[in-house]
């Protein structure tokens, strides 16, 4: 038996700064488990659109709060499964493409694995921590326990108390948007940073789209920094979170979210809109 160290030297690779289309082509594959995270703020819309343009299929999409970009990915037939905790258009109403997939299997059936926010957040924490599962007080007495395989009771070995266990979430690839990166690929984000750090660290591969690349990352209050060696690729996509927003760069386009309700209600209207605004515009270089 050989010593594990004989396989070669331990080396940290750093994030490459590449065009978005190239990053999606090399990092997101058919059948992958993909998390595009963002809690209202910093949602990676441009990357989601590139996944649609490259016609990925059979994806398991993971997200705490699937919103408009997941509505679009689901409506365009990219996903077979959704692992989530809240699927709606915040403050507006339903996600009509998500509902159509669940209620009518259009354009294809969508299998659900349904959690609560606390459960999903802890699943990412376990993934980022290299643990097989996370423990929380959660779900007890709800019908989610019987419905979702990945919610189990566990006994505390110290107190005997019954708690809830959820398995680690380990996406094949996590995609997030951030305000900026430096030329070495260190990433900086601030404002509402949600569960993005955990989602990136939990994933086997990661892609971060940024508003801009700067020479030096000036510290910002409340910042989260992802060191270059924790990220696989960075792509520069100014406005890449629209109609979500990037604190310090843009505001949430709430009118767009309100208007999406009418666009997404009807299959033909949706497809025409996607063709004109996403599929037809070509890849982001």
């Amino acid at each position: 038996m050989r010593c594990a160290h004989s396989h070669g030297r331990v080396g940290n690779r750093v994030a490459e700064i590449v065009p978005l289309s190239e990053a999606v082509a090399s990092l997101v594959h058919d059948g992958d488990t993909v998390a595009l995270e963002g809690f209202t703020h910093l949602i990676p819309f441009a990357a989601g659109h590139e996944i649609i343009r490259q016609e990925r299929r059979g994806l398991t999409l993971v997200r705490m709060t699937p919103d408009m970009i997941y509505d679009q990915l689901i409506g365009m037939g990219c996903a077979d499964r959704l692992v989530f905790s809240w699927g709606g258009n915040p403050g507006v109403g339903s996600l009509h493409r998500f509902r159509d997939a669940v209620e009518n299997s259009w354009p294809r059936p969508l299998e659900l694995e349904e959690h609560s926010h606390a459960g999903m957040a802890n699943r990412y924490v376990a993934g980022a921590s290299g643990l097989p599962f996370a423990v929380l007080r959660g779900y007890t007495g709800t019908d989610l326990v019987a419905r979702t395989e990945t919610i189990r009771a566990i006994t505390c070995p110290f107190t005997g108390e019954t708690l809830t266990a959820v398995p680690a979430m380990r996406p094949d690839v996590t995609v997030v948007h951030a305000q900026r990166a430096d030329r070495s690929g260190n990433v900086q984000m601030w404002g509402i940073t949600g569960v993005q750090k955990e989602a990136v660290l939990a994933a086997r591969r990661s892609l971060v789209t940024v508003e801009e690349v700067v020479d030096e990352l000036e510290p910002v209050a409340g910042q989260v920094v992802l060191p270059s060696w924790a990220v696989t690729a960075v792509a520069v996509v100014p406005g890449g979170a629209h109609p979500s927003y990037a604190q310090g760069y843009s505001l949430r386009d709430n009118e767009f979210y309100v208007a999406w309700d009418a666009v997404s209600r009807d299959r033909a209207t949706f497809l025409a809109w996607m063709d004109e605004h996403v599929v037809g515009v070509g890849s982001v270089r």
Binding site: H41, M64, Y124, V125, N254, Y257
Partner: peptide, 19 residues
């Protein structure tokens, strides 16, 4: 309009992660 509008972060005592 949403639980994540920028105005909520701008006016908060603290902004923490979701976990």
């Amino acid at each position: 309009l949403s639980i994540g509008d920028g105005i909520l972060a701008d006016t908060a005592d603290a902004v923490v992660s979701v976990p």
